[in-house]
Amino acid sequence: MLIPAAYALLKIGRVVWMPVDGSLHGPAADRLMWWNLVALCAIAVAGHLWLAFAMLRRKPAKRSVPAMARWVLLAGFCGMYAWMALTAQNLWAETRYEGPLQTAMHVEVVGVQFQWYFRYPGPDATYGVTRPRLVNAAAGNPLGIDPRDANGRDDVVSSVLVLPAGREVELRLRSLDVMHGFFIPGMRLKEDAIPGMTLHVHFTPEKVGTYPILCSQVCGLGHDRMQARLMVVSPADYAAWIAGRERAREAEE
């Protein structure tokens, strides 16, 4: 049973573990994952040693395991499960119980077969109204932003997610057609994009770099193609990029 695992480890040491983490809450999550895996692997091994011992033991023992021992063991496991639940719970509460900071920047993530779109609310910091009937990717309006709505004028729609390092972002997830799964392994972040609902997640990218964005919920024949890139850049670069996009948009008009 261990041979393929060892083989795998040797062959592909790097990718076989979680990808490098670039988020603020990531290290805590990874530490949690690590301890869980260690503890549970140890238990699994212990269990199998016990099994092997019982199988190899030819001469039957007269005494059986006292009930007391069983209960103690069980109590031990209860303790472990409780500990796991608690530690995990703290992290969960940290990342999900409260909304973003006031200073967080806002980006809207929209999934559509089989594309991710990212909408920045622009200088006015409010998203323009969208209408399904206006959706027309060919005409450069993939989200159906209503041109008659002033708030929408300065919205920037991008197919790459560019974020400044070190600043918290508040994502609002939507989907135009079917369920998609918004997954950034490098940010230890996943939340489904569900049509008819708007879901919110917030996180803080720390390390500058490029991270794949995947779709983690089967959404049709292009499910595996439905990917994008997250580019975490320095605040200065980000300012430059968004300004550039604004100018480009104005040029169109």
Partner: peptide, 8 residues
Amino acid sequence: STGHFDVY
């Protein structure tokens, strides 16, 4: 209990 946010 389900609904949605209209354009306004």
